[in-house]
Amino acid sequence: MSPTTTPTVDPQTPSTSAYAAIDAGKPRFAWVRGSLQQVLAAASLIVIVIFFSVASTHFFTANNLISILTAATVTGILALGTTFVIITGGIDLSIGTVMVLCGVMAGVFLTYWGWPLWAGVLATIVFGGIIGLINGVNVSILGIPPFIATLGMMLIAAGLSLVISGTKPIYFNDTPAFQQIMNLSIIPGVRFPLGVAIFIVMIIVAAILLSRTIIGRYTFSIGSNEAATALSGVNVRRWKIIIYTLAGLFVGLAGVLSASRLSSAQPTGGMGLELEAIAAVVIGGTSLQGGKGSIIGTVIGALIMAVLTNGLRIISVPQEWQSVAVGIVILVAVYLDMLRRRRD
């Protein structure tokens, strides 16, 4: 027997024992762990809901649950789009202020320029997409790190909102139907707003995009191993631009809904919203290292944040403490995820 062969293997035919040797290190029941973070997030959501339901009779009512969903809508839609970017291993810090800028642009299209409602709304969403496209070009063609590229865009958008609006809110007086986009009650008898329905549709759209389309496949692939994806003949630069543009379209929609909700385009604010959206994504188990994540996780993450804010207000915890609570939730969620990974 030569030193380089083992007695169990016949070199001509790969016997099952040869494969058994290869299989030795394969973890069993690994598939359970993949979805554990989502299960964990969902379980935490349920625990939090039960806690508040016990703590206050005002919490678990149809009206309050709908207002939680309403509160989750804008951040949630931002989070949906940014989930794609984060799975590629990137980050988009500009979504908060760009959303505000999109609201201002809706004011420009509809109030300043007097466009019809459908055109103004469409143009606003496309505008968001264009900003996303610019982010994508900056990241993938110019090679600016996503953190810096979108930090720059965050400041640019914050400034442009003020410049374009002359620092004053823009009201949608000529298009009264604009505020119905978010607020129209679509179920008789229940105050179920159209905006929440749009959110739900967007969840489904995002979930299909991520799991069933080429965009989603390359999103995971780039985040998993960008160099290898490029070597496999995928035009990584182009797909990154597409992914940032897609995230921008979601931002544009969020801008429409947010302005509609307030019946006006408020040129200030938006800063910090990107971090709330990123928090929702992270709580939902999407890895900032890229390659891992899910839409359902992001939705649960956004709901956890909305339920916490709402519930703490209902049980009369001062607002100052709400942000503390959200911060703790983020740390706990990510720590649990780390624990899980370490065990693997």
């Binding site: 069933r212 080429i214 496949r217 985040g223 191993n225 160099a227 290898a228 994806t229 390659g291 891992k292």
Partner: peptide, 29 residues
């Protein structure tokens, strides 16, 4: 290559056909 060019988060089949997926309507897999 010496360093594997695989995407660890993708499945075996997804890795093998990466960049050559058959799509319907240009989008769906």
């Amino acid at each position: 290559h010496q360093e594997f060019n695989l995407m660890p988060d993708l499945t075996v089949a997804q890795n093998i056909f990466i960049g050559r997926e058959k799509r319907s309507a240009g989008l769906f897999l």
